[in-house]
Each structure stands twice: as C-alpha cells, then as structure tokens.
Design a binder for these strands. Structure first.
Lengths: 353, 353
DNA sequence: ATAGTTTCCGGAAACGTTTCCGTTAAAATT
DNA sequence: AATTTTAACGGAAACGTTTCCGGAAACTAT
C-alpha cells in the first residue's frame, strides 16, 4: 500500500528529512516559505506520517484509555459522551476500546501503554477477574467508574479509585420505597457473577431493607438471571420474570436490579396477563434514559451519570497531576417514582400517571 | 513508566536480542529450553513488547477496522457481535473505533493504515461527508454496511462495496402494509441530513407507496426530526411526535423511519391520551431487539443484521483475497406485524396481540 | 575420521520517525 | 569592518523491534 515516507517527501522538496519533520510538527526553526512548500507536496502525495515510527520516538503524546465491557449497553452512552467532552478540554487523546473479557482489557491496556504514552485508564462496566500484577505493572492511575468493588483483593484500595453510587444503600432505598407502598412479597431479580458485583451489592441492599422492616426473606423470591446470557439484557429480564411467574410464587412487587431487566420483566408480566402496576409493581435501577420512554415508565434509582463521569475524569487528572491520591467516592442516586409502581392491592387502585 | 525493553531481557538471560524476539514470536529456530527460560524472565519482569516498534518492522499483522458512528446505538450491537466472531475465525485483528464525525473517521483510518497493516475498513452508521481523495488514498477495500448510499459522487461505485437492505423498497412495503390496513392519512417521521441518507431513501419509499395507491402526499404529514439532536433517538421521536400531535393535523397512522423514533413517538402518543393501535397505528423500521419488548410491540421492518454482517465480512475478504471486485448487495427485510398497528378506525377494534 | 546436515544462536541492518547538535549564511550589533 | 546573534537547515543518532545472514556446535551418514 501507500509506500511513501518522509524521505520521499524530503527528496521531492529538496530538503532534509528533519526539515519535513519540522514542517509536520509545527516546529519553530523553519521558514514559513519552506513549510508551505513542503505542506503542498504532502497534500499532493497524500502522505501520512507513520504513527508507529512517530510514537516510537515521541514521549509527549498524552493519552488515556477508556475500557468498556459491553460498549453497546445504553447505560454507557451518556458516560462516554461526557468523558469525551472532558478529555477534549484537557487535550488528551482518548482511546475507547471495547473489550470482551477483562483479561483482554489488561492486555489491551498494556499494549496501549507501550504504543502511546498512556497516562491513565478508566474502566467502565462490571466483571472482576483482574490479574492484579499486570494491572500494577502498568503504573498508571486506574479508575473504576460505576462498577461495584472492582478488583481482586491483591491490590489495595490506595492503588485505584472508584466512583459510583453506593449500590447497597441505594438499593435498600428502593426496597424501602416498595415497602412503604405496602408491599411485603417483594421479588428481586439480580445477578451474582462475582462476590462484589453490582448485582450482589444491590441484593444486599434488598436484604437490608427487608431485615430493617422485619420482613422475612423468602428464598423463592430471589431470582438470578441466566449467567450464560448478557446479564443485563431484555431477554434475560423477560426469561427470568417468566420463570418467576410460572413458578407460582406469589409476589406483589418485582425489583429488578437494572432497568434493562425491568423492561424485559414488564413485558413478561404483561404477556402473562397482569397489569402493571395494578397487579404487580415493577422497579428498576440505573435510571436509563429509556426508562422514561418505556410504557409504563419505570420507577427506578437514577444514577447521576453525568456527574459521575465528570468526577471520574477530574479524579484521574488530579492523580496524574499529583494533586491527590486515589479516592473512593459515592454519589447519591435519586429515586424516581414513575408509573410502574403503585400501592399494594387496593381493589381498584387508580393509575398514578 | 515501565522502561524495560527487549535488550534488558536479553542481557538478563545472557542471550542476544534476536533470540528473545524469536522466543516472543514463536519462531522455529529456538531451543525450547532457552525459550522457556526467556519466557520466565519475561513473566517476572512484566515486560511487554513495544507495539510501535513491532509494527514498524512487521508486515504481516493483518488488521481490519470497523468505524462506527454512534457506537452506543443499540442497532449496532448485534452487528458488532457477528463481525467480531467472523474476524476471529479469520484470525484478523479487529479495531473497533467510535468516531464522531466522518472527517474524523478518515483520519483515524489513515492513522491505522500506517500503524498496522490495515487490510480493509468497514463503515457502520450514517453520515456522508467523506473526503473521497483521502479515502481513495487509503488503497484498502472500503465496505459500507447498512448505510444508504455512502459516499460522495467523486468516488465511483467500483471503488467501494455496500451491503444493506433496499431502504426505499422496504420502506414502501411498510407503507403499503399500512395502506392495506385502511390507513390513508399516514404521517411519516424521518430525517433528512443528506441527500442519500437512510432517512431520505425511506421517505422516497413512503412517497412511492402513496403514489402507487393514488393517495395524495400531504406536506403536513412529513415530519423531520431535529437535526441538532441525535437523529434516531428516543427524545427526538418523542419531541417530533408531540409537535405533530399538537399541530392538530389529522392522521391515523404514524410511520417512523427507525424503531428508536417509534419508541419515543409511542410514548408521546400515549401521553397525549391516545391508544395504540386503536386510535393511532405506529410503525417503525430496523427491527431492533427492543421492538419486541416494548409495549406495544412495534410493527417494523426487520433488517437481517446477522446475515448482513456476515456478508459484509465475507465480501471484504473476497476482495482482499482478490476473489471478487466490489459489490453492492441488498438484503430483503422482513415485515413483522406486531401490536402497534391495526386496521383503521373500526369503532372498537380488537387488539391483535 | 570426514563431509554434510541440522540446530541454535549472535550480529547487524532495517523500519520511519523525531530530536539533538552543528553548520552556514544572513542580519544585527559594535 | 569585525564580531556576535539569529534564522534556517542538514546530518546523524536514537527509539525498540524483527529479520536476514552467517557461523559454531552438535549430530548424521558415509
């Protein structure tokens, strides 16, 4: 393919390679005339500098990586947007990478660290099988955003930052709310991939809330999504809710640990001939944009993703600039009451739209 | 940061640099013993080869790029999945990049072409401001998947491939269907960013269908989404539908040129107190997974994204391998009738769930 | 034992840049 | 007019790899 290099340009212009390089990089020591001439030839020939060679020498190209597991999850959309904005302000290049498993992530990061001058990594999305030695070896700030408790115990809290809502606390707020509506038989749909996953934390919040109100936890009401599928997907929500309904266990409210699950669950409930919220109340978590457009609008805990994202970037730069060490910050979530929940059981309760 | 290079490893092992390289790259000419020893040291030190240097020399690292505008759009999720699978089979590295504007894309691609040995580019998502000279200069196969007519007229059809559904035709199928249900006042919600955009093509299909049935096109029924917002977003669907409803124009069916728009529109219609499909039928396009979980399930044209994705990759490799030239292929879409549409007006029409 | 093969490894060139250092000629200063 | 400064540029080393070429042992076959 395009074999043309900087030396051809130099020849064509009758100057030295270094001069072309200077023209390319807006260096001072160059005659505007010469520069213009060189730039023209470059334009003509369609020459593009080889980035590998460039990065091999350069030391100043600052770059941070955002590694996302499940980049297509709508949950990340607003986060990516904000992070991109903030990075732009700081004039840092941003590399957004979609990674399947976390093992991959690390290798991707390692690679980046060598290719470019990686200054930090932001991890988005759950999954916790980090090989901590490698992670430490990177020697750049690691920021985990909106994921429960991110790393293996081999790496200490002083070596990474986390920014998120307090999943356990917020989760219990939601369950408290359902209880306040008179519900006692509250089912939960969650995910239990790893010990400290978001799903597990939110389950703990559920249990806390029940305990606080002396409601006995019923094993049958705790449902795990299929771990062989995308955890927080519509299909999984649908499937799990369907199984719950068909099991015959009685419940008046279903708390889904993610809005995506709630969407799927709602559809299953409707398909089964029940009305939401008259027959069954459904609650979600995350506050996805979609939850406000779904029918019914989903009662959920809204995560302040914009603020979280902004803070994520801020913390990263504070650490890079040496202005602070690693931090672990919780943001408050907001309970938004919508159409999918209602007080329990009143014969014909009015829709609270 | 991690300053350790291949020469340190060589020193530590008491071997030559080339030997370490051989160990690293699974070369033949090396004693398994030596290799093992070297690998151990590498593991210990956490050494990672510098990819820039590596790519500078290598010529075989094959790589193809997938450039997506709006990577967070759920539309792309299944496509990415399939493409990743297929690439894995071919043992090609895949670089997935999120790009904001198409200008960016090209630069990204150019950069890639130099860094790695880029063998092809797949473009996903609309937007058509390609600077064709640059594109040509890349000298690698360009494949446009699921986007209308992709490039500026300066670049000929023999120089790129397209794989998609026939947007115009499929669109008219949907409108024909609505007409067959007895609808005459059919509103359309579309997007008109560029001449040959997906939205424009689908609008043409709408006009064709109306013309074929001698239904007069009513300017007031053609609605454009806000071009300053994300074109195919819930918000835009909601907002545009709301404006349409408030305008007082009468219509019995609303055809949204994308499911995302349909979701938003449905919500606006419901909020306005109408029932879907009893009062207003709503149709979408794309066949997003979500359309089967939304309430009501959206009548839509389902794009065979799996097949399209697979074919996209296949065509790319055919071209790379010199087994064929560029192609322009249409896949048929599938009209899926769901809950959001019904025959017009019968006093109390039964829901066709 | 000799010649021919293999096996394994070291040396060094090359990849395409950037950057440091030095040089020249012109401009500015004395 | 002689000296110093400046502007513009060329030359070459360096970045960290891979790969080609050749050479020394260690085998194999005669």
């Amino acid at each position: 393919m395009s074999e043309i290099t900087i030396v051809e340009i130099a020849k064509k212009c009758g100057v030295a390679v270094s001069t072309v390089s200077r023209a390319l990089n807006n260096h001072a020591d160059i005659n505007p005339e010469t520069k213009k001439r060189i730039m023209e030839v470059i334009k003509e020939t369609g020459y593009v500098p080889n980035n590998s060679a460039r990065n091999l020498k350069r030391t100043d190209a600052k770059c941070i990586a955002v590694l996302i597991k499940g980049i297509t999850n709508p949950f990340f959309s607003p986060m990516i947007e904000v992070i991109e904005q903030e990075m732009e302000k700081k004039k840092y290049a941003l590399v957004l990478r979609h990674v399947e498993a976390y093992e991959d992530e690390i290798d991707v990061a390692l690679q980046l660290e060598k290719e470019k001058r990686l200054r930090g990594i932001i991890f988005l999305g759950g999954g916790y099988r980090h090989s901590s030695e490698k992670l430490k070896a990177l020697n750049v700030p690691l920021i985990f955003s909106t994921i429960g408790s991110p790393v293996s115990s081999k790496i200490s809290k002083a070596e990474y930052s986390t920014i998120a809502v307090d999943d356990k606390l917020e989760s219990s707020k939601m369950v408290e709310y359902l209880i306040s509506l008179g519900h006692k038989k509250i089912a939960i749909m969650t995910e239990g991939s790893e010990k400290m996953s978001v799903g597990q934390l939110r389950l703990q919040g559920y249990e806390d809330a029940l305990a606080a109100h002396n409601i006995e936890a019923d094993e049958d009401l705790i449902r795990y999504v299929d771990k062989d599928m995308d955890h927080y997907s519509l299909e999984n929500g649908y499937k799990t809710a369907k199984a719950l309904l068909e099991s015959g266990v009685k419940f008046t409210a279903l708390y889904c640990v993610s809005d995506m699950l709630a969407f799927g669950a709602c559809r299953a409930i409707i398909d089964a001939g029940y009305k939401i919220p008259e027959d069954i109340s459904v609650a979600g978590f995350d506050g996805l944009n979609m939850s406000n457009y779904y029918s019914p609008r989903i009662t959920t805990i809204k995560q302040p993703l914009d603020e979280i994202s902004r803070e994520t970037v801020k913390i990263l730069f504070d650490i890079i600039d040496g202005e602070s060490g690693h931090q672990h910050i919780y943001f408050p979530g907001e309970l938004v009451e919508a159409e999918s929940t209602a007080p329990k059981k009143k014969k014909k309760s009015a829709k609270n739209s």
